[in-house]
């Protein structure tokens, strides 16, 4: 029963707070902050790590990861993310396409133009500043 096993393992991998996917769509979100890392050659670079503590003025990167867990391609996908209250939208995250809509700075939305194949997915993100 490979299909059932695959679904079970997917459920187990879903973060505990996530609602169980009712359909073939899965979405997870993470809130990240930049962390400076000193490299052995003396240079400093930044990487994103999960946010554990923020104070006003900090920049957070909100990442949404989506996946087609079904068996058929899915077209016209729309991802919507309300900008959390007490943060201010700044722009797309590094490497992420810009959202199609930033409604009053309170909602970020991406509309995917290409269908997502079964098992396919991706990540999008935006940055916001804690007021």
């Amino acid at each position: 029963m490979p299909l059932i096993l695959a679904v079970l393992s997917l459920l187990a991998a879903t973060p505990t707070q996530a609602a169980p996917p009712a359909g073939p769509l899965s979405i997870t979100t993470r809130m990240m902050v930049e962390q400076r890392v000193a490299a052995a050659d003396g240079t400093t670079r930044t990487r994103l790590v999960p946010a554990t503590r923020v104070v006003p003025g900090d920049r957070v990167t909100i990442v949404v990861a989506y996946r087609n867990t079904g068996t058929a391609p899915i077209a016209d996908l729309v991802l919507a993310n309300p900008v959390p209250p007490s943060t201010v939208y700044r722009g797309p995250a590094a490497g992420s396409p810009a959202p199609d809509l930033v409604a009053n700075g309170s909602q970020v939305r991406w509309r995917l133009t290409r269908p997502v194949a079964p098992g396919g997915g991706g990540e999008l993100g935006f940055t916001a500043i804690v007021r």
Partner: peptide
């Protein structure tokens, strides 16, 4: 933060909410 995803498939709306 909570994100949502939605699409049309076979003429019906499908959606999901994130963690």
């Amino acid at each position: 933060n909570v994100a949502a995803i939605s699409a049309q498939q076979d003429g019906r709306a499908i959606d999901a909410q994130s963690n």
